[in-house]
Design a protein around this nucleic acid. Structure first.
Lengths: 189, 189
DNA sequence: TATTTGAACAAATAATACAAATATTCAAGT
DNA sequence: ACTTGAATATTTGTATTATTTGTTCAAATA
């Protein structure tokens, strides 16, 4: 593993625990056993470190979902697996979860303000290609792909956030499941 | 119109324009042509004035939607009318819209923290009774009424807010329409 | 009696200045 | 290519005072 990634891994835990403001470059340097000035050899500034840390964590999330989806054949199962794997992943990765709670702006949904557009677009592409496959196989209604994708993506993000902001816990999980099945029936012919 | 309502009407515009903190009791009093101490004859304190102002505006919204829904017979049409009337109402009432943007906590959705539980519950009841009617008439799937209601209600709130936060304008409106039709297909047998 | 007011007081906010912590740069060392 | 220590630039914290705003209340008014 290269050193940028190593720094990001340590920074992720610190940002999650203390938040952006309370985490100092020196904290990160200490965790790495180096001096703070050396962090600047790898990152432009604190903001840059934060963004690359978050972007890396989001990419890991997206890749995990993409892998699970690729393992399924049936398009309806792909959809369900995508929905549930995302949920599971966040449950298991508390650092990323905590950061999403502390910095809700990570999911701005208005593309022009999205600080992580690239990786978020990638996540949306997974959903989009499932819907396209469903239509091509004549198993989904011929919906407006772009708008339905955006609709479902924002609903999905909202629930992932909501589920972990307060420990609304099982109620939201049940709501989410009902929502997923509702969406499946809405898509399916 | 009684004076409490009159004060609330003026306060609504001021809260919308300046926000809770920047709006002073004196601003409200001036708008009414009275002194600030007299406001305390009608309201316990500033917080009380704000809550009653917002609750009143929310009630007006809910009543407008309830009226439109009651005028329809067909349960699917009821659902659509509910969705679209809500949207229209917010488009037309920019003060309420602005307040919802400035104070997203108005829709906390975790009932224990909901400052406007009574009126929000009333709004959710409209949706719930539509779903119940659909099931009773054997036109909707036998879903988990409570959870599906909560799911759709939070999606619906999210979009109403989103649609007006930035002027994402027509894109969100189209997304919303696609979402409504997706939900209709998901509910309908 | 129901409303309204002005004056007084309490609480929150704004403004200021100084001290401490933190971010960032950079020349020099490994 | 990588790391460091020291220096500088920014931001944040604290303590103080001034100003604004929220709230109360006894007296006035209608």
């Amino acid at each position: 593993m290269n050193k940028e990634q190593e720094i990001c891994n340590h920074a992720l835990g610190l940002f999650a625990h203390y938040g952006y403001r309370k985490t100092t470059i020196e904290d990160v340097a200490d965790a790495m056993g180096m001096t703070k000035s050396n962090i600047y050899f790898y990152f432009k500034n604190k903001q840059d470190l934060y963004e690359k840390t978050v972007a890396g964590a989001l990419s890991g999330w997206r890749d995990s979902v993409a892998e699970a989806v690729a393992a399924e054949q049936d398009v309806v199962e792909k959809f369900r697996v995508m929905a549930y794997r995302s949920f599971e992943y966040l449950r298991a990765h508390s650092d990323l979860r905590t950061i999403l709670e502390k910095d809700p702006g990570i999911f701005t949904l208005t593309p022009s303000e999205d600080r992580f557009r690239e990786v978020n677009m990638g996540a949306m592409e997974i959903l989009k290609s499932i819907i396209e496959q469903g239509i091509k196989e004549n198993r989904f209604h011929r919906v407006d792909v772009q708008h339905v994708t955006e609709f479902l993506f924002s609903v999905y993000i909202m629930f992932l956030i909501r589920a972990y902001v307060k420990s609304e816990g099982s109620t939201v999980a049940t709501m989410y499941e009902e929502g997923v099945e509702l969406a499946v029936r809405g898509l399916r012919k």
